[in-house]
Measured scan of single mutants.
Amino acid sequence: EAEIKAARERAIVPLEARMKQFKDMLLERGVSAFSTWEKELHKIVFDPRYLLLNPKERKQVFDQYVKTR
């Protein structure tokens, strides 16, 4: 159900806005820029903003977040 709702939101909200919300979530959840995606996943997986991006986009935004922190 959450994935269906997220898919609707992905269709409406522009990618750039969704990427910003995802980055904000990473900051708010205290995701370490010195860790790996796999180790940090448990901090963010239950946040509704996690589903704003598809899996490939999530990883790309995380990688970008790590490089710029």
Rank of each mutant, 00 (worst) to 15 (best):
E1G: 08
E1H: 03
E1T: 12
E1F: 06
A2M: 14
A2H: 04
E3Y: 08
E3D: 14
E3S: 09
E3K: 06
I4R: 04
I4A: 03
K5D: 13
K5W: 09
A6K: 13
A6H: 15
A7L: 09
A7V: 11
A7P: 06
A7R: 12
R8I: 04
R8G: 12
R8Q: 11
E9D: 08
R10T: 14
A11K: 07
A11P: 13
V13S: 10
V13Q: 12
V13T: 07
V13H: 15
P14E: 08
P14W: 02
P14I: 04
L15M: 08
L15A: 10
E16M: 05
E16P: 12
E16C: 13
E16L: 07
E16W: 06
E16G: 12
A17T: 08
A17D: 10
R18W: 02
R18D: 03
R18K: 14
R18E: 03
M19A: 15
M19E: 08
M19V: 13
M19W: 06
K20H: 07
K20M: 06
K20Y: 03
K20P: 10
Q21E: 11
F22V: 01
F22T: 01
K23D: 10
K23R: 13
K23Y: 11
K23C: 11
K23V: 05
D24E: 14
D24N: 09
M25L: 10
M25E: 00
L26W: 00
L26N: 00
L27K: 15
L27V: 13
L27D: 07
E28H: 06
E28I: 03
E28K: 04
R29T: 10
R29A: 10
R29I: 05
R29N: 15
R29D: 02
V31R: 01
S32G: 10
S32C: 06
S32H: 11
S32I: 04
A33D: 09
A33S: 14
A33K: 12
A33T: 06
F34N: 14
S35L: 02
T36Q: 07
T36L: 05
T36I: 04
W37A: 03
W37L: 07
E38M: 02
E38Q: 09
E38S: 10
K39G: 12
K39S: 10
K39Y: 08
E40H: 02
E40I: 09
E40V: 06
E40T: 04
E40D: 08
L41C: 05
L41G: 03
L41K: 14
L41Y: 07
H42G: 08
H42A: 10
H42L: 04
H42S: 12
H42D: 15
K43G: 03
K43S: 03
K43H: 03
I44Y: 05
I44S: 02
V45R: 14
F46I: 09
F46D: 15
F46H: 13
D47M: 00
D47R: 00
D47E: 06
P48W: 06
R49Y: 00
R49M: 01
Y50K: 02
L51D: 10
L51Q: 12
L51I: 13
L51T: 10
L52Y: 04
L52P: 03
L52C: 06
L52N: 05
L52K: 05
L53T: 00
L53K: 00
L53A: 01
N54V: 15
P55T: 14
P55L: 10
E57V: 05
E57W: 10
E57N: 12
E57Q: 15
R58D: 00
R58V: 02
R58G: 08
K59Q: 11
K59P: 02
K59C: 14
Q60H: 14
Q60G: 09
V61I: 07
V61F: 03
V61D: 01
V61Y: 02
V61N: 03
V61P: 00
V61H: 03
F62E: 02
D63E: 10
D63W: 11
D63G: 11
D63P: 01
Q64G: 09
Q64D: 14
Q64L: 06
Y65E: 03
Y65K: 01
V66E: 05
T68F: 05
R69T: 12
R69S: 14
R69Q: 15
R69L: 13
R69Y: 05
R69W: 13
R69V: 15
